[in-house]
Amino acid sequence: MLARIPRRRPALALATGLLLAPLVVTGASSPAAATPQECERGANGFVDIPDTLRGTPAPVAPARIIGLTGTLYYGKIGGVTRGWAHLGGETTWGDSVWMDWSRDGGRTWIQCGPFEVTSGGQTKTSAAQRTSSDPNWKFRACVRWGRHIPPAISCTDWW
């Protein structure tokens, strides 16, 4: 015997998805995902930084999703100017931040992260990567609101 599925739930899921659809950011090409371990402890030129570290905000608008703010910062770390992504705001378990890094102007990139929040109110950063005067060397910060299924994602513009 087949169970009868109420029609309200699919309609509610569709309506919720349509309302949050503008929050989801997609790119022209797929990232090469890197695990946090591929972006930590010096791997691929990335360095670890404290989850509370802030620097000079990059000249791009922060990524925002319902109480979360993703900011792209840069500053001197160990004598080298580096960029990183920072997640702040009303965070809770499951929210995350990462930094996309491109060497071809944003056509392709490495996604460094996600780095997940483990408790409410916690700030989180990505690992930091050195900056460059090369106009093709770009970063952006991305955040995921983990309380929604599917998660909503927002990224800053490339800098």
Rank of each mutant, 00 (worst) to 15 (best):
M1V: 14
A3I: 12
R4G: 05
P10T: 02
A11L: 13
A13D: 11
L14Q: 13
L14P: 02
T16Q: 15
L20Y: 08
V25F: 01
G27E: 10
P31G: 12
P36E: 01
Q37S: 15
C39N: 01
E40N: 00
G45Y: 01
F46C: 00
V47Q: 07
I49R: 01
I49A: 09
P50N: 02
P57V: 03
A58F: 04
P62V: 07
A63K: 06
I66V: 06
I66D: 13
I66Q: 10
G67R: 11
G67C: 11
L68D: 07
T69P: 08
Y73P: 07
G75V: 09
I77G: 03
G79H: 04
T81L: 11
T81S: 06
W84M: 10
G88D: 14
E90C: 00
D95L: 10
V97R: 00
V97K: 05
W98N: 12
M99W: 04
G105N: 05
T108H: 14
G113S: 02
G121M: 03
Q122R: 15
Q129R: 15
Q129N: 08
S132C: 05
S132V: 10
S133A: 12
K138T: 12
A141G: 05
A141D: 08
A141C: 15
C142I: 09
C142W: 09
W145Y: 13
G146N: 03
P150R: 06
W158P: 11
W159H: 11
